[in-house]
Amino acid sequence: MPESPMAQAGEITQLLAALREGRPEAPDRLVPLVYEELRQIARAYLRSERPDHTLQPTELLHETYCRLVGQRDIDWRDRTHFFGVAAHLMRLILVDHGRKHRSEKHGGGRTPVALDKIQIGSWDNFEGVLAIDEALEKLGQIDARLVRVVELRFFAELSLDESAEVLGVSRETVKRDWNIARAWLASALTLEPRREP
């Protein structure tokens, strides 16, 4: 069991500082701390299925961050790096949720995915999220960095500037990577045979 949130707050702040300085061990130690908290908060969000409320990862991540670090001093760079670590976790959680939804509501069957419906923030489009995830698996075999960019932009909804901060590259580089990743995903999803209803 993790320690109490208050005791963790100090450790997490330190780990975030280490992350910002680029110390390699920081993400590995941060991930388990973040994952448990994020999963709990996500579960509460997703369980309630508030119909009037589009699930927003940024909101979820923000809440997790506040809970772990405490509200006192939110440094946007710390927060951004935190989001960077949590982006992959966010992907796991949303995909997991999508899979559950698929098996519960549709008896395991798939419904078709319209490409134009997959957009940042369309989290109730479970099939879309799952399709992106599957395509990312394939993209990962070619270019892991592009996957990282998609996780930051799509699953954590970070802006170009924030993603650049996390990756330690220029905004221009992120933009290029993002463009090519989008193109790659679009072509991968289109090539996939689509089942007509």
């Binding site: 490409l115 134009d116 997959i118 957009q119 940042i120 932009r153 799509f154 909804e157 970070l158 802006s159 170009l160 993002w178 463009n179 989008r182 193109a183 790659w184 995903l185 679009a186 072509s187 289109t190």
Partner: peptide, 13 residues
């Protein structure tokens, strides 16, 4: 694949 679509278009900014 990239040209015609506003697929994943970046509006967050």
């Amino acid at each position: 694949a990239a040209a015609p679509s506003d697929f994943l278009e970046d509006r967050s900014d």
